[in-house]
Design a protein around this nucleic acid. Sequence first.
DNA 1: ATAAATTTTTGTCACGCGTAAAATTGTTAT
DNA 2: ATAACAATTTTACGCGTGACAAAAATTTAT
Lengths: 374, 374
Amino acid sequence: MFFVRANATGVEGSHASAANSPESAHIGDLRLGEPIIRTMEDFAAASGVSRPTVSKYFHDPGSVRKSTRERIEAALEQYDYRPNIYAINQNRQLTKSVGIIVPYLADPVFAEIARTLERRCIEAGFHATLFSSHGERKLESEALNDLRSLRPSGVLLAPLGRSSDRDQIARFCEEVPTVLLDRNIAGIGEAFVGSDNQSFVSQSVDYLTRTGEPPCFFEMRNPGNPNSLARHRCYIEAMEGHGLEPMLVQVEGEGWNLEEIGYQGGMRALQEHSFPTDTVLCSNDRLAIGLLAACYEKGLRIGRGSGCALRVAGHDDHPYSRFTCPPLTTVAHEYDLVSDCGAETLLRLIEAGGRFDDRTETLFSARLVLRASA
Amino acid sequence: MFFVRANATGVEGSHASAANSPESAHIGDLRLGEPIIRTMEDFAAASGVSRPTVSKYFHDPGSVRKSTRERIEAALEQYDYRPNIYAINQNRQLTKSVGIIVPYLADPVFAEIARTLERRCIEAGFHATLFSSHGERKLESEALNDLRSLRPSGVLLAPLGRSSDRDQIARFCEEVPTVLLDRNIAGIGEAFVGSDNQSFVSQSVDYLTRTGEPPCFFEMRNPGNPNSLARHRCYIEAMEGHGLEPMLVQVEGEGWNLEEIGYQGGMRALQEHSFPTDTVLCSNDRLAIGLLAACYEKGLRIGRGSGCALRVAGHDDHPYSRFTCPPLTTVAHEYDLVSDCGAETLLRLIEAGGRFDDRTETLFSARLVLRASA
DNA sequence: ATAAATTTTTGTCACGCGTAAAATTGTTAT
DNA sequence: ATAACAATTTTACGCGTGACAAAAATTTAT
């Protein structure tokens, strides 16, 4: 199954004889005669400036005299000291830190959202700490607790949704200025930024009915995701708005393995001929990816051409939907815009002192992306 | 583009009038007469026990007398106090925290690895903090610095690879007990856990040559990933071992958008007929996913059947490779095993006091996964 | 009941830093 | 040179915790 090579490089072993005391670990890279800099105290002594002045410098380099600044920066060159961010957070009245929580990092959409959020916060001079709930309520709670200890000036929270501990989130939001992202919880947090599910579904339904048979809706019977519930409702509304009968194809399954759920459910639906029309609109792209795999296995040709058996469309513009076979027609979740706006909203919130007078909800419209699958 | 609904829910506004002082924010959930518990000092007073005893309790509940334990736990019920993890880390000689760094969380493979690592560490009673380098050397450096401040007992580090600051990582590893993951850096860290690239490539090359034309190798010209370099070498060795001429198809591109790079490179290679054989072995599954999309667009049938124009295989068993069309034949990177072993190795390292006598390298063999594409 | 062992309390120091007031030094204007 | 002002240093305290020694209280053994 596996094997172990000991000392495979043959070059090291240098630290094998080193003792465990923290000093000895540093003897290697210590030019003799130079002191070891661990704390701001040490660094202040080494640079010939008092510790509070050093503290002031790190808070705002422009707030100290030029000659002092130069001395500090000279010492900085030599010792590359950096203050302990967690000690700072413990003591500053208003931190330069923000927290980010996403429900599930293994979902590429959230991975992208997290990446953008982190970048924006860093660009604004903040230190960002990222947490993933990994789909588990317990881990979401842990993340909230950690964030409390971190004392961030603000938090961007994309909650798990149905399985969140609503009361705990509400309490957290009263303690820490929080912007909700992607999934709204009515009345909780200082603001919400997300997508307008109605514009998602109405666009896809409009397009599909205009260009062919009206779509049935392919979804999970018990989605953990509140956006799924909203899309379900919007589909029904949109169909009724066209004077059409809604057609639901619901698949079983729990958790976050949506491609697998879409595949299994798709196989079953195809075997049992449960699709009442030749057009399938999936609640999200991950289910669609699974369905496409099932269709391929069944030998069905997907697309809007004459030789095609089925049209398949999704929602979200998942990073991989460009690369499915055929490429997936979908409605883009503008997660870059949502992320940018979320980060910006949080920064405004922090500048405003942590509270807004009114709780705003910013919803981005979706953008239809036509590709070959429908 | 987007619109804002102010006060859309119509139910809230309760905290709109709350002042900014930390006390007033808590009046809402404060049963009058009960003190607000923020620190261990407060909590000790509320539970009628001294603070050091409370501290002892949290360190090890079994270390205090039963009657004392019950008093603390009764108070815990009432106030749900939790010690500040960052303050703890600052003071404990040996922390119950570990750090995890992965190079790119938006890659589902690393997202899965991170998730498994985190879970294992939590199960072992540790507090895990996850960092993503997001593909940027600067962010990897930041993560290392943050971890220094966090004072973890150990770190699991999957480095960026080529773009890592090797010296900085070396220095870090001398300060903090570190297990390297997925990508080895010779001699750095107390141990390495990863995959045996040779077994990957030899298995795929063996299988493909046995069942059809020998494969050409589809890869990036300048991969940032050291595993890619290793696989390149292993492909050449494997081919020569069969007495065959290695055939390389190298595509341009930078960064982490591998599907796109595979797609663009694949389109070009197909247009220019650069594939010298009907069998394409991709350096990793993400490139393969892009190539499959290009093949679909070109109308090429993929698979090992008689009506097929091309066989395509990959490496890694990417979470989506099951759902490509056709499903991708690949060699599984056993990232669950790697994660488990990595976590276990770190725990052993911590128990051993942070240093191993010998630097071990544990390599997992790959597992051939036959699907329809080759 | 008394002595011995265990547990808890008290007190004090530590960690690495922010912060505020007072004392000192440096700079500029006159 | 002197006053006026700004920048800096000193001093002292705080944050929320761990760690350790000595004293006090409790439990257990005899």
